[in-house]
Simulated assay, not measured.
Amino acid sequence: MLYVYRFRLYPTKEQVEFLNRQIGHCRFVYNKLLEITKENYEREGKSWNYYEYKKLLPKLKEKFPFLKEANSQSLQEAIKWLDRAFKNFFKGLAKFPKFKSKKRINSVSIPQHFRIEGNKIKIPKLKTPIKFKKHREIEGRVKSISITKLPSGKFYLNILVDREIKPLPQTDKVVAIDLGITHFCTLSTGEKIENPKYLLKTEKRLKKLQRKLSRKVKGSNKYRKLQKRIAKLNEKIVNQRNDFLHKLSKRIIGDNQAVIVEGLKVKGLLQNSKLSKHIANASWRRFISYLEYKAKFYGRKLVKINPFYPSSKLCSVCGYKNENLKLSDRKWKCPNCGTQHNRDYNASLNLLKEGLKLIKGSLTIRAVGLERPELTPVESAVALVEAGSSSSQ
Score class of each variant (00 low, 15 high):
174 V>K: 11
346 N>E: 14
204 K>R: 15
100 K>W: 03
265 K>L: 10
273 S>A: 05
255 D>I: 01
182 T>G: 06
145 I>R: 10
220 S>C: 05
354 E>L: 05
72 S>N: 12
186 T>A: 11
155 F>C: 06
45 G>Q: 05
41 Y>E: 02
104 R>H: 11
277 K>P: 00
50 Y>D: 03
126 L>T: 09
76 Q>E: 14
256 N>F: 07
133 K>I: 14
83 D>G: 02
299 G>W: 04
10 Y>G: 01
166 K>W: 02
348 S>P: 01
260 I>A: 06
2 L>K: 12
207 K>A: 15
65 P>L: 11
216 K>E: 14
367 A>N: 09
229 R>I: 09
139 E>L: 03
59 K>D: 03
54 K>W: 00
29 V>D: 00
251 R>K: 15
42 E>K: 15
141 R>F: 04
10 Y>R: 09
353 K>H: 12
295 A>R: 10
184 F>T: 11
393 Q>T: 08
103 K>E: 05
19 L>D: 04
216 K>F: 09
239 N>G: 01
285 R>W: 07
186 T>R: 10
111 P>C: 14
79 I>C: 08
281 N>W: 04
245 L>E: 06
277 K>W: 03
368 V>L: 13
50 Y>G: 02
283 S>L: 00
111 P>T: 08
392 S>L: 15
187 L>T: 11
393 Q>S: 08
130 I>D: 09
349 L>R: 15
379 E>I: 14
43 R>C: 02
64 F>V: 14
240 Q>D: 01
11 P>D: 12
270 L>H: 08
64 F>K: 05
273 S>D: 00
147 I>E: 09
345 Y>T: 06
175 V>S: 13
121 I>C: 10
258 A>Q: 07
129 P>A: 11
70 A>C: 02
359 I>H: 04
242 N>E: 14
68 K>F: 05
233 L>T: 00
125 K>C: 06
72 S>F: 08
110 I>R: 02
8 R>L: 04
210 Q>D: 12
256 N>V: 10
320 Y>M: 07
295 A>N: 06
391 S>R: 07
131 K>A: 10
390 S>W: 09
164 E>K: 13
268 G>A: 13
